[in-house]
């Protein structure tokens, strides 16, 4: 137990300096609270979503020291001194991150519940591997479930953002990504 830690009733209270999206937050909470609870309920950073809270869906993913981690299975008490990035930290001033831009332009978010987890996971992937193959993107996202999109637009969005981030301005997403697949028998109606 830390010397500053106290007992409040049965609950061991802790005080931690959490560094979230580059801002320091001096915060007190019960030691058994997950990072997800502290982000949403203490720091009011509700961009990070809660789904299964058991490690099965990936929507609560945040970056800790640049690595995707499930905030529902992380004790906030163990996060002091580490760099925490949530979806709220992806914008640069008023500019969307290229991933956010590509997701918005392609409609890669439908209900949007999985989106924060997928965006930060993709951000970590592109920082390590600026030109991932489709298979590498699928593998990196294998812990993030989406119940709406069928994943195609998510994959296309990440490929588009990767191209923008590499400065490859010639890249255009496949036409189907923007207009949808042609109906059977219609051929290439967007030609």
């Amino acid at each position: 137990m830390d010397s500053q830690d106290q007992k409040a009733g049965e609950h061991q209270q802790v005080f931690r300096l959490l560094n979230v999206n580059g801002e320091p937050h001096q915060t007190g909470f019960s030691v058994h609270h997950s990072l997800l609870e502290v982000l949403r309920e203490q720091l009011n950073l509700t961009g990070t979503k809660h789904g299964c809270e058991l490690g099965e869906c990936g929507t609560c993913t945040v970056l800790i020291d640049g690595q995707p981690v499930l905030s529902c299975l992380e004790l906030a008490a163990e996060c002091e001194g580490r760099e925490i990035t949530t979806v709220e930290g992806m914008m640069d001033g008023n500019d969307l991150h290229p991933l956010q831009e590509a997701f918005a332009d392609l409609g890669a978010a439908q209900c949007g519940y999985c989106t924060p987890g997928i965006l930060v996971t993709a951000k970590a992937l592109l920082e390590e591997n600026p030109e991932p193959t489709r298979d590498e993107i699928v593998s990196a996202l294998a812990g993030n479930l989406c119940r709406c999109t069928g994943y195609h637009k998510i994959l296309e969005g990440i490929e588009w953002a990767a191209a923008k981030m590499r400065g490859d301005n010639d890249y255009t997403p496949p036409k189907e990504a923007i207009y949808g697949d042609p109906l059977p028998g219609e051929g290439d109606s967007h030609a």
């Binding site: 137990m1 609950h11 061991q12 019960s30 030691v31 058994h32 997950s34 609870e37 299964c52």
Partner: peptide
């Protein structure tokens, strides 16, 4: 939220 039960915590 599905929360953890309370416990005493040590990180030796």
């Amino acid at each position: 939220m599905l929360r953890l039960p309370a416990f005493q915590f040590h990180a030796p």
